[in-house]
Design a protein around this nucleic acid. Sequence first.
DNA 1: AGGTATGTTAATTG
DNA 2: GCAATTAACATACC
Length: 267
Amino acid sequence: MPDAYTNMPELPDLELDKRQVDAHAVGRTVRAVTVRDKRVLEQPASTLERGVKGRRFAHSERHGKNLFIHLDDGHALLMHFGMTGYLKFAKSDETLQKSEAVVFELDEDRRLSYCSRRMLGRIELVETVQDYLDAHRIGPDALSLDARGFRERLGQRGGLKAALMDQSKLAGLGNVYSDETLFQAGLHPRTPLNALKEDDFVRLFRCMREVLETAIEHEGKRPELPADWLTPHRHEDERCPRCGSPWSVAQVGGRTTFWCPKDQPER
DNA sequence: AGGTATGTTAATTG
DNA sequence: GCAATTAACATACC
C-alpha cells in the first residue's frame, strides 16, 4: 500500500484506523511484541512488551487524533500518529519494512504494525484513557460536541483557525480539515473569535460535522472528496471551485493555510 | 541542494 | 497573563 502514509492523520483518518483495528485486531491475542525503533516510545521497550504480550485486544476507542486499543486487563495501548504514522495489517510471514517501528504478532499468523516514516508519533501503554487525556490536556472529541458545547470550547479569544486546531479546546481537527470547515462556513481563518455571532458558530459547527462525516464516508481519500470542496484543490496553482478565485495562501496559526479571498472575506 | 510537509510541544516574543 | 510566533523533532519528497 504505497499511499497509506500520505494522509497526515486527522480525525477521519483515525476513525478509519479504528474500524480497521476492530475488523482485524480486536479479539485477537498478542503473541509477541517487537520494538524496532524506540523513538516512538515514551517508556522502556520492556514495559510495552511485558504489558502487551499475552494480552487480548478487547476493544478500541478513538478520541480526536488518538487511538486507544483496550487490553483485556484494563490497560490501554495509546497510538498517536504524528504527521507520518499509519497502521499496517499483514500476515506474520511478510517481510518487514523500515518504517514498521512496533510490530504486534497476533493469533493465526496475523500482524499489526505501527509504522512511522518520521518517528514523530507516539505509542504508549497507559493505565486509563482519562489519565492520558488529562496528562496531555486533550479536550473533548470534535464529534462528541453539540453546538452549544462547540461554542463554549472554542472560547472568546484569539483567532478562529488556531482555536479549531487547538487539541485542548476540541480534539480531532488538523490543518486540512480546519481549512475545509472554514471554507464551507465562509469564514476567514483569521477571524477573531469575539467577532463571531451566534449563527456563525451554528453554521461553523454544522460545517465541521459535515466535513468530518463526509470525509469518513469517503474513507479519507482526499482527492475523491466532493469537487466543490477546498481539499481536492488544495494546491497553490489551483482555484476556488465555487468562484474561480486564486487561493490565498499564508501562515495562520503556524501552518500553511488556504482560503478563498472572495468567499471567506476578512472581517 | 534546499525548501516543504496535513502534528505536537516548549521556548520565545510581543 | 495571554496570544502569536518560532524552533525542534526526523525523514521523504519535489
